[in-house]
Simulated assay, not measured.
Amino acid sequence: MKELNGFLGAALQFAALDVALHKSMKNGLEEAARRIAETAKDEVGHYQASVGPFNKWDDLADSTEADKARKGFPADAPLERTGGFRDSWQFEVDGLEAVVGSKDEKAPWFEFGTTRMPPRPVLGPAVIHNGNFIRRIIGKAAVEGITKGHAIHPSLGYDDLI
């Protein structure tokens, strides 16, 4: 453990720890958000089994399959006609907050269903499928941030940290 030289040394060390931890956690959060968005993209176009509180996807209605065939879209590919919904999944990280989602206006209908269409959740299952990865990457980021925060050289001032 690093020895703290007086109050200024302690303050610099704590500032370094805060900066390193914040940077490492942001990187971990970005990696987790990217993985969730990629998993969501991968789920589109394939029937999904039940996971956690989410039921397996129902088969597409015969009328839906007929309409897709008539328009030249792939058969047995739920939520995939043009690929636009699949490609709409993205993420943003701002500080220690991440948002993963789709900008497709139909995404809530797909996720939660409607009176005429059963739910075909994408985001919830993507998070569950990546639960272990998320815990591992965030834990690793926390440890790396704490350990890197102790690696400050005593000659550095606060301005050098930010």
Rank of each mutant, 00 (worst) to 15 (best):
58 D>Y: 14
22 H>L: 15
78 P>F: 00
51 V>I: 15
86 R>Y: 08
53 P>C: 12
74 P>M: 03
113 G>Q: 11
24 S>N: 02
74 P>D: 05
149 G>M: 04
98 A>D: 04
153 H>W: 14
107 A>F: 09
40 A>R: 03
87 D>A: 13
34 R>I: 08
74 P>Y: 06
16 A>P: 00
39 T>M: 09
24 S>K: 03
160 D>A: 02
42 D>T: 15
77 A>G: 04
107 A>V: 02
89 W>H: 05
120 R>C: 05
150 H>Q: 13
59 D>W: 04
142 A>Q: 11
96 L>E: 08
31 E>P: 00
6 G>A: 03
26 K>F: 10
95 G>M: 11
11 A>Q: 08
87 D>R: 11
126 A>C: 00
158 Y>A: 14
47 Y>D: 11
129 H>K: 12
139 G>S: 08
111 E>G: 01
67 D>V: 10
138 I>L: 03
17 L>D: 03
66 A>R: 11
160 D>F: 01
25 M>W: 04
36 I>V: 10
131 G>R: 12
71 K>M: 07
150 H>W: 14
64 T>K: 02
39 T>N: 07
44 V>I: 02
155 S>P: 12
125 P>Q: 10
32 A>P: 01
36 I>A: 03
59 D>S: 13
52 G>S: 08
65 E>S: 06
12 L>C: 13
137 I>S: 03
